[in-house]
Structures are given as structure tokens and as C-alpha cells.
């Protein structure tokens, strides 16, 4: 097994974020290696979801949010004034906690993103839809029912549809915000398998409250924690997943992953 040199797709540098006056996360510095899966773990309210939403500036949609520090995508600060957030979100896609297909057909759900960038050619769209559904390991289950509503699918299928919908936009990074918290264990494993396959082409960041999931799917793990109530969430430890789960450096990480608190 040869270790190829890791290049960083995204770099979070001294990032702090405030909701109006409340400091949600403080001084997080973290690298997101290309074509690897980075997991963010920590107890509820530790700021891991907040952090991941900083990576495609989804927090901008909330009133009163303010950030300090930088997040770089391929070396370019996405928080610099005038940065194209719409273009950013095409490059950094997101899969949410609850499967949220639009109340449109399976086909229209996947074609939504490509249509936004002006792809109208039917054949081209057909190709993208098929290709994306195949990459999301859903094609064989839905190829005969593409015109049915995406919301008629099972929870796990809906989540894979949402992944296909993101893939169709051909992003470089895919963020997963607790993607399996609303679906059953078998569907969860299917999605974990899928993530392992997507690693070839995409950089992924997954927020999960399920430590075992982080252990199973990720290459790198970051542990976040709010130490005292009212304090901001901070990054406690970051390292390759194997080390984090066999021999973490920080005692707090050890206590969290062994279930001694949180």
C-alpha cells in the first residue's frame, strides 16, 4: 500500500462564528484532504453542524451570522468580500440530516441542478440523470419509476436520491450533515458503502453523532467539544481515524469515544 501525498482541498483557518452575540465556534483550524472522508464528531451542540455549514456558507442564510477567520477552497478564501456564493455551493454540495427530495419526480429532482446551469438538451439531461443515479447506487431501483415522486421512495432511497441530486451538479466537495440519523441501519450501511465508492472522485466531510459511523467511514476524524455551557465549540483533536479510535492523544477525546461522557 503506497501512501500518496495528501493535498488539502479545503483549509479552515482560525475560524470563529457568531450567531448575533453568541459565539458558536471558536478558532477552528482544520485541513480537509482531497478525495478523503473527514468526519466531525462530538456531543450535540458542539458546533460540528455549524462548522460544516461554514464550508459552503449556508450559515449566511441565517440572520445575524458573522464569521471571523478563513475557509479556503483550493487556496482561495471563500469568505473574501464579493466571493460568488452561488458558484461556491455548486462546488461544495450538501446532503442533509433528513432526506429532502423536492416534491417533484425522481428525474426532476436529479435534473434540477443541471437545469440551473442552463442544460436544456433532453439527451444530455437523460444522461446526467442516469449517470448520477448510477453513481448513487440507486439507478437499478428507480429506473422504471423515474416519473414518480421522489417522496414515494423509502427513507434510505430518498437519501440516495439526494446524493444523486448533488452528484448531478458535479461538485468537488460533498458535505454530509448527519446523513443517516433518520434512516434505518441497513440503509445506513448502503450509504456508507456508497461514500466509500465516491471517495475516488469527491472530497467528503461528514458530521455524525454516531462515533461508530465516523470510525467506519472516515479517513480523518476531528473531535469538537463545548467544555462549559455557554462556551463556544472548539476543535479538541484531529488526526487519522485509526489513531483517533485506537490511541487518541487528548484525554477528552478518549473519554468521549469510550462513552464516558457526552
Amino acid at each position: 500500500m503506497t501512501e500518496e501525498a495528501l493535498e488539502n482541498k479545503m483549509q479552515i483557518k482560525n475560524l470563529s462564528m457568531y450567531y448575533t452575540d453568541f459565539k458558536a465556534i471558536e478558532d477552528v483550524t482544520l485541513d480537509v484532504p482531497a478525495r478523503r472522508i473527514t468526519a466531525l464528531i462530538g456531543p450535540s451542540g458542539c458546533g460540528k453542524s455549524t462548522l460544516v455549514r461554514c464550508l459552503n456558507r449556508m450559515n449566511d442564510l441565517i440572520e445575524g451570522v458573522r464569521t471571523e477567520g478563513q475557509v479556503e477552497l483550493d487556496g482561495e478564501n471563500i469568505y473574501q468580500p464579493g466571493f460568488d456564493t452561488i458558484g461556491l455551493r455548486r462546488r461544495v454540495g450538501m446532503v442533509f440530516q433528513r432526506p429532502n427530495p423536492f416534491p417533484k419526480s425522481i428525474y426532476e429532482n436529479v435534473a434540477y441542478g443541471p437545469k440551473l446551469v442552463g442544460i436544456k438538451d433532453k439527451e444530455k439531461l437523460d444522461f446526467i440523470v442516469e449517470d448520477s443515479l448510477k453513481k448513487a447506487a440507486l439507478w437499478h431501483e428507480v429506473k422504471t419509476i423515474l416519473r414518480e415522486s421522489g417522496q414515494n421512495l423509502s427513507g434510505g432511497q430518498q437519501q440516495r436520491l439526494c446524493i444523486a441530486r448533488v452528484i448531478a451538479v458535479q461538485p468537488e466537495v460533498i458535505l454530509f450533515d448527519e446523513p443517516c440519523s433518520a434512516i434505518d441501519p441497513v440503509a445506513t450501511q448502503l450509504i456508507e458503502d456508497l461514500m466509500a465508492e465516491l471517495k475516488e472522485n469527491f472530497t467528503m466531510v461528514i458530521v455524525t453523532h454516531n462515533m461508530q459511523q465516523a470510525a467506519r467511514v472516515s479517513d480523518f476524524t476531528a473531535f469538537m467539544l463545548v467544555q462549559e455551557q455557554g462556551e463556544p465549540g472548539r476543535l479538541i483533536e484531529y488526526g487519522d481515524t485509526n489513531t483517533m479510535f485506537t490511541n487518541p492523544t487528548d484525554e477528552r477525546t478518549e473519554r468521549y469515544i469510550t462513552g464516558r461522557f457526552g
Binding site: E192, D193, A196
Partner: peptide, 8 residues
Amino acid sequence: MEVRKTFH
């Protein structure tokens, strides 16, 4: 249906 491909 086989799941946990990576693990296996």
C-alpha cells in the same frame, strides 16, 4: 443485498 462492502 450485500452491505458493509468496505468492511468485508
